[in-house]
Simulated assay, not measured.
Amino acid sequence: MPAKSKEKLGIGVIGCGNISMTYLRNAALFGGIELRACADISADMAALRAKEYGIRALGVDALLADPEIDLVLNLTIPAAHFDISFSALSAGKHVFTEKPLATSASDGRRLVAEAAKRGLLLGSAPDTFLGAAGRRARRLMDEGAIGRPVTGTAFMMGRGMEHWHPNPQFYYQPGGGPVFDMGPYYLTMLVNLLGPVERVMAMATRGQEE
């Protein structure tokens, strides 16, 4: 295993499921960070990812207590986001979590307050609005290319998470579903382009009986 750099931000990954491979693979593209350990509710899954990427497999508590971990990357299911992120902040670690930040606004505010109290950084996916398309749209709007924007809209269509995700159960539990799981991509882009949300209106229907 390569020697640990004291000048790099040590990353510990909690949650070694489907999305973790994207983060673990792309980590090599960033010079200022270093993968150091991973943990999962399944010890076998953590061991597999550790072997694939040359890092240590630890239990969650051991990873949170590890002095070589500066930032916890929270890739657990949505219902576990708050507990893992709060525990990481309490252990003095910076946190970046997959979306949503938490499954309720009150829990999200608790995380923000805890990070501020401890002087720690807290971030949440998605960061896709920082991609090429989002930045170009932002620049064109700033330059007045489309005049004064008055509205924005976004749509998501799909036949179900179970048609591609290897473990889709989380999608149909509290904290999952299209609004929590996919909505952040569209809402973040709209907020970035149009500004903060002032009012919310919602309506829903069920297309068929269960």
Rank of each mutant, 00 (worst) to 15 (best):
S90D: 10
D83E: 14
C38N: 08
A57E: 03
L75D: 10
L101Y: 03
A137N: 05
Y53T: 14
A27N: 06
E98Y: 13
A46Y: 02
A91C: 01
K51N: 14
D40F: 02
A132Y: 11
G144F: 13
L9G: 01
L73K: 09
V13T: 07
G17D: 15
I41Q: 00
A133T: 15
P100M: 09
A115S: 01
K117N: 11
Y23L: 07
L122Y: 07
D44S: 15
N26I: 06
N26W: 05
D61S: 07
G10Y: 04
A116T: 01
I41P: 00
D83Y: 10
L24C: 09
A79D: 10
L120F: 06
K99W: 12
A50Q: 02
R135I: 09
P149D: 06
A102I: 11
F82Q: 08
R136K: 14
A137V: 09
A80T: 05
A105C: 04
D70A: 02
K8E: 03
K117V: 09
R136N: 11
A37F: 05
D61E: 15
G134M: 00
I11H: 10
A132S: 04
L64I: 08
A88G: 06
I146D: 09
R49T: 12
A125T: 10
S85V: 04
H94P: 04
D83T: 12
G134K: 00
L101N: 03
A105L: 08
L120K: 01
K93Y: 14
K51A: 15
D142G: 14
L89F: 14
A62D: 15
R118T: 07
I146L: 15
L64G: 05
M45T: 15
D70M: 03
A28L: 07
M141Q: 05
V112N: 03
A132K: 06
L24V: 05
P126H: 06
I41H: 00
P67H: 11
C16S: 14
E68F: 01
L73S: 14
A80W: 10
K51Q: 15
I33M: 01
R49C: 12
S85M: 08
N74I: 13
L130C: 08
M21W: 10
A80I: 05
L140Q: 11
Y23T: 12
D70R: 01
G144L: 13
I19M: 08
A57I: 01
I14H: 13
I33L: 04
R138H: 09
P126W: 08
A115F: 03
F30A: 02
A65D: 14
A28Y: 09
A105K: 05
L29F: 05
G15M: 00
L130M: 12
L48I: 11
